[in-house]
Amino acid sequence: MRVAEQSNGPVNHGWPARLHVVTGKGGAGKTSVAAALALALAAEGRRTLLVEVEGRQGISQLFGTPPLPYEERPLPTAEGSAELRALAVDPEEALLEYLDMFYKLGAAGRALRKFGAIDFATTIAPGLRDVLLTGKVKEATTRTTDGNRVYQAVVLDAPPTGRIGRFLNVTAETARLAKVGPIKSQSEGVAALLRSPMTAVHVVTLLEEMPVQETVDAIAELNQLEIPIGKVIVNATGAPLLTSGRVTQAELRQGLAAAGLPTDRATVAGLLTETKAHRTRLALEESLRAELAELGRPLVELPLLPGGVDRASLEELATVLRTAN
């Protein structure tokens, strides 16, 4: 068993990075995993920020809170946790904030919005949009007050695996557009953070062919970009149901009789078919697990939540993540 962490001490072990980027194939549950990881890190005593960037309000849906504004809002945590906050980054607001910070534009910045300038800028230069989003994440990750870090951990619910390379490779995108100037230096700062040991990209997958393939592809892409990979998180794994070898028709019939259940041919044949299909499925999952293991990254398996994801089940996932190495 792990000894409880000091609330401010250097933590840990399983999740050493400060910025945790969570990606995964759409439908693999990356938002739930990101939320659970944020709860786990807060429970370890780290002041944590959970960030979303795709305008989906996935965090507020999970936690059952009103939609998040562009503001860091506290989320309910388990007792004894460090503070956990959530932020939904909006590219327009991020651009205005950026302008304010660097140029003191104030009201002029608001005027830009009235002109549709910001919509325009983030539309015509999508790389710019990503720089603004990742730039905000970098700002939160490195923010200090009185020499102390405001957040000891930042968890980013990032775009899915298909877009993650482009999203994180901000310098390449902006280099095409801005050869000099503050946007260029901003993107270089983001790139440096993303390529440092402070960052880890975790890939969420399911034990199904397409998500596993996308995981393999995404990790190859991130490796090429020299962005550090954290863990491969296998979500929604089924509890083991089998305790013995193959059951014969006769054994099954005897068992059903012993339990006082019907033993007619249809029932016996039906149950045998189901068990056989289950074994086929398990064999496929085993081969996919082996494929994931070959990636050489730590694997963490999270249980399937039969009732869907709610507050209680998020805590359950967080507990599993806390014990991961």
């Binding site: 089924g238 149901l241 089998l242 305790t243 013995s244 070898g245 193959r246 059951v247 014969t248 054994e251 099954l252 005897q254 068992g255 059903l256 012993a258 339990a259 149950l271 045998l272 189901e274 068990t275 289950h278």
Partner: peptide, 19 residues
């Protein structure tokens, strides 16, 4: 069946069916 013992295969099949 698990409590009674001796019918592990059948108990497995029933658990698979229940899931």
């Amino acid at each position: 069946l698990t409590a009674a013992g001796g019918h592990d295969g059948a108990a497995d099949a029933l658990r698979v069916h229940a899931a």
